[in-house]
Design a protein around this nucleic acid. Structure first.
Length: 903
RNA sequence: GGUCGCGUAGCUCAGUUGGUUAGAGCGCACGGUUCACAUCCGUGAGGUCGUAGGUUCGAGUCCUACCGCGACCACCA
């Protein structure tokens, strides 16, 4: 049987078949009826955008979710992982528009219906590929529940929510300053406008008063007119100014309050108003007011009933509200032209360099234009309160903890949510307008106006923000608004694992929606996973070209290797660094680990051939020291692994299992028991070793299965585990931590320290591998004595050494490095190596080395003593030289001590 | 401007409530044809724990300031 397995693990030979088997057997399905017996555990997937195939960030996040789901499933929970995808309104529309652009067309050439059809075509192409990727990395989703934010079921939920919020007065339509993307031609929410630090300029403009105005204390133009100085980062907006504001208590301007200035270039006169918004400390203390193009100015304008003059078209081209000569210009051309014109008229006071945050469209990176616009909004205050309480009362917990504060801060300063988008791809706003003025908001498309009976209704052309469907995901995927079994059994869900950058976009809003529409927070734990970066610390992205394709990794190294790598790298609060140009460095450790397991399995199977393996409990009395030791270590690993999973400490979980299986089970235990398996000694001893080995492998594979489901399953299915067991690791029981055996651990630790000492000595003194050495021990402690008796072959097997007696210090013997380690362990060992070391040769070698280092040190010191070197060489070179000299001195000390020990 | 995080070996990171000689993986060097695995085994080198103070018998760990990097938020024109 063992011989059938090749010496290398080949993921390709197993992964696809195993996954198909799992799916066919329905292991990933969760039936609500079973909830009576098994406690549900539910995760909803953060639905990937259908814009493109998955990247490494998805690989990381979905592996983490799969680890959690598989672990809980093994614990006997009714585990459900709901998969699906997001229509990603603006992002997907952009992708398809880009494709059209390559064909030289725009969406307007196609028309709305044909364009939507075109996007659907793209979705039908992308969605299956995304789902296929998730399967390729082993995600154990319940695929019968696959959802899409734009499918009929979820669209009903969206509509229901819109209508309900509208009925409650929490959705309203109004003209406000919103963030407008002149490239996407749509409004954006505050969150979708990302501020970017930009080196810009601050222009100081002069607004003159009419000739003859008496303005004591103000500067004057050469023609005698007094003027005000206002500062702006967007000079072109002055074309839409409605006033200049000064602080009411600002004495400098008391005389001109209520007067009018002549707005340059426009021929308009605008008032000087008193408003607390003006900060006397900033610049001149006077600020221009442009109600149609700045949110603050909009508020000032409202307070003073100023006109809001919109000077731009949707494309940010100056419109007819701009004066003659300034119409039809792109906003940045307009800026230049305005500045030139002002300068020509002597109305430009100056320009300063100015670094400030400029909002950019999060989808196309165009500078966003604040703009007065008629849009739909959600009133967020009432929704935020309960969401805030959920966090404060720890009904929703964040991992890492620090995100709690970020979340709460956002909610405490919540602003209304602009939800209408001037796009074609998305959920159409369920509002109809009648010529009679009636506005109809309805769950079902209306046939006629309830007020006037007219059938000529016009539907609002806009669609909803894509997050307006995402925020319902935890319950819309379970059937809401219908009262379904799924909803009753699986809501609320338990863990939400996602990227920190969508904490506000998605997580916070889901909590608000869950509380509002279900009366319960949608999940109890939020795990914010690491960001995947390249070695330069840059976030992986398609545009930078530094991404890694998960499928390529699966193809080269296997899904298990990918999963192991990202889970092992997922320390709490740190990012994951992967090198797209060196996949080998990033993923070979995972592949090697899978191969190590494979060979542990091969080894076991070769030795098990044809034998009946008893349960470990049946051979308790026959267990030897090594057996008791590895079982104790297994207990420790099981306890640690479980605790780490509970605490979302994935890195610690992964390394616990890794160290146990490789460092202890393979490197130590298997090496220790080889003689017993080879047929030396009694049958009972062999039986005990085999039973232990099988138990350790069985349990170890269970512990590792959530991370590396494929290789563990491939081996487990072949492992002759005694007794009854399920047909797959997927549904096997998660191990319980067994009791520790402190005596066994202490003894084995002493033995291993001795082995280490001997190995160190052998290596340092170049003892040929084939040559056995005698080891003399003095002051041997109880644990070590016991260990040497219990494992008489250990020294020979692991260190090619023979225990040549206690208490005698052979002539010419000396202490070797490492012996102190044993002493520190409380086991009191002295390890002379008699007769195997050529002390003369060793002394000569050390002396030569000492001389060489001494020469280097002297050279360095000579350089440092040379004044022309220290005064002329660059400081860092001198410093380095100093460091070198010091390090040589240290090395010399070390060598001298060693040499002294040999005399 | 506010809030938060990070600086430990060449690289990526662990370091519990302060406690002997600061760890792991990778990389590097040296040595290995033992019949599970060279995708392996063994050994080793390499660290002023960002800087400067402070608290303490004792600080990588706690406090203060500073330097550097990063994130998020914010209407300062």
């Amino acid at each position: 049987m063992g011989q059938e397995l090749p010496p290398q693990y080949d993921p390709k030979a197993f992964e696809t078949d195993l996954y198909r088997r799992w799916e066919e057997r329905g292991y990933f399905r969760a039936h609500p009826a079973e909830a009576a017996q098994r406690d549900p555990y539910v995760i909803v997937i953060p639905p990937p955008n259908v814009t493109a195939v998955l990247h490494m960030g998805h690989g990381l996040n979905n592996t983490i979710q799969d680890v959690l789901v598989r672990w809980r499933r093994m614990q006997g929970r009714l585990a459900l992982w709901v998969p699906g995808t997001d229509h990603a309104g603006i992002a997907t529309q952009n992708v398809v528009e880009k494709q059209l652009a390559e064909e030289g067309r725009t969406r307007f050439d196609l028309g709305r219906e044909a364009f939507e059809a075109r996007v659907w075509e793209w979705v039908r192409h992308t969605e299956p590929r995304i789902l296929g990727q998730l399967k390729a990395i082993g995600c154990s989703c319940d695929w019968t529940r696959t959802a899409f934010t734009l499918d009929e079921r979820l669209s009903r939920a969206v509509r229901e929510v819109f209508v309900r919020l509208h009925e409650k007065g929490l959705i309203y339509r109004g003209r406000y300053i919103i963030n407008w993307c002149p490239r996407c031609l749509t409004a954006l929410s505050n969150e979708e406008a990302e501020g970017r630090e930009t080196d810009g300029q601050l222009w100081r403009l002069r607004y003159p008063f009419p000739a003859g105005t008496d303005a004591p204390g103000l500067p004057t133009l050469p023609d005698g007119r007094p003027y005000l100085v206002v500062a702006t980062t967007r000079p072109e907006t002055m074309l839409g100014d409605a006033a200049v504001a000064v602080h009411p208590s600002d004495g400098r301007y008391a005389a001109v309050a209520g007067a009018e200035v002549e707005l340059p270039l426009t021929g308009r006169r605008i008032p000087v108003i008193g408003d607390e918004w003006a900060d006397p400390e900033f610049g001149s203390g006077a600020v221009k007011v442009t109600p149609a193009h700045d949110p603050n100015d909009f508020e000032v304008g409202r307070r003073h009933e100023l006109p809001a003059l919109d000077i731009f078209t949707e494309e940010a081209i100056t419109n007819e509200n701009a004066p003659e000569g300034f119409r039809g210009l792109d906003r940045f051309e307009a800026r230049e032209k305005v500045v030139r014109a002002l300068r020509a008229q002597g109305l430009l006071e100056g320009v300063d360099a100015h670094t400030h945050s400029v909002p950019h469209c999060y989808r196309c990176d165009t500078v966003v234009e604040p703009r007065l616009s008629l849009q739909w909004f959600v009133r967020m205050g009432p929704l935020a309160e309960p969401a805030l309480a959920a966090s404060r009362e720890e009904r929703v917990r964040f991992t890492p903890r620090r995100w709690k504060k970020v979340y709460e801060h956002w909610l405490e300063n919540i602003r209304d949510w602009c939800i209408s988008r001037q796009l074609w791809w998305g959920h159409r706003i369920p509002v109809w307008y009648c010529a009679c003025g009636r506005e109809i908001v309805a769950r079902e498309d209306p046939d006629a106006c309830p007020a006037c009976g007219s059938t000529a209704l016009e539907r609002d052309p806009d669609v909803l923000d894509t997050w307006f469907s995402s925020w319902l995901w935890p319950f819309s995927t379970l059937g809401w608004p219908d009262d379904t079994d799924d909803l009753r059994v699986f809501y609320p869900t338990h863990t939400l694992s996602t990227a920190p950058e969508i904490l506000f976009f998605w997580v916070a809003r889901m909590i608000m929606a869950g509380l509002e529409f279900r009366g319960e927070e949608p999940f109890s734990d939020v795990y914010l996973h690491a960001t995947v970066r390249d070695p330069l610390g840059r976030k992986m992205s398609k545009s930078l070209g530094n991404g890694i394709d998960p499928l390529e990794v699966v193809d080269l190294y296997g899904a298990d290797a990918l999963r192991y790598t990202v889970v092992a790298a997922a320390g709490v609060g740190t990012d994951v660094t992967l090198d797209p140009d060196d996949l080998e460095a990033s993923f070979s450790p995972g592949r090697n680990f899978a191969n190590k397991l494979w060979n542990m399995g091969r080894f076991a199977l070769m030795n098990l051939e044809g034998r009946d393996i008893p349960p470990v409990d049946d051979v308790r009395d026959e267990l030897e020291l090594a057996d008791r030791w590895i079982l104790s270590r297994l207990g420790a690993a099981t306890g640690d692994a479980t605790r780490y999973l509970e605490e979302f400490r994935f890195h610690d979980y992964a390394s616990t299992v890794y160290r146990f299986l490789w460092g202890e089970a393979a490197d130590r235990y298997i090496e220790l028991v080889k003689p017993r398996l080879d047929g030396e000694g009694a049958d009972a001893s062999r039986a005990a070793a085999l039973a232990t080995l099988v138990h350790v492998l069985d349990t170890g594979l269970r512990l590792l299965h959530p991370i590396m489901p494929f290789v563990t399953e491939a081996l487990w299915l072949r492992l002759p585990v005694p007794g009854q067991r399920p047909e797959s690791l997927v549904v096997a029981a998660w191990p319980r931590a067994e009791a520790r055996d402190d005596d066994a651990e202490l003894q084995l630790r002493a033995l291993m320290a001795l082995v280490g000492s001997v190995r160190t000595a052998r290596s340092e003194y170049n003892v040929p591998p084939a040559r056995a050495v005698d080891v003399h021990l003095t002051d041997v402690s109880g644990p070590l004595t016991a260990a040497l008796e219990a494992e008489p072959r250990a020294l020979e097997r692991l260190a090619r050494a023979r225990h040549a007696g206690d208490g005698t210090r052979a002539a010419g013997a000396h202490e070797v490095a490492g012996a102190h380690d044993v002493l520190a362990d409380g086991t009191g060992v002295f390890v002379p190596l008699a007769g195997v070391i050529d002390l003369d040769r060793e002394r000569a070698r050390l002396a030569a080395e000492l001389e060489r280092i001494g020469g280097q040190r002297e050279a360095a010191e000579a350089r440092l003593a040379n004044e022309s070197f220290t005064s002329r060489a660059p400081a860092d070179v001198v410093e380095r030289e100093r460091g070198k000299a010091a390090s040589f001195r240290e090395q010399e000390d070390k060598l001298a001590r060693k040499l002294g020990a040999l005399r």
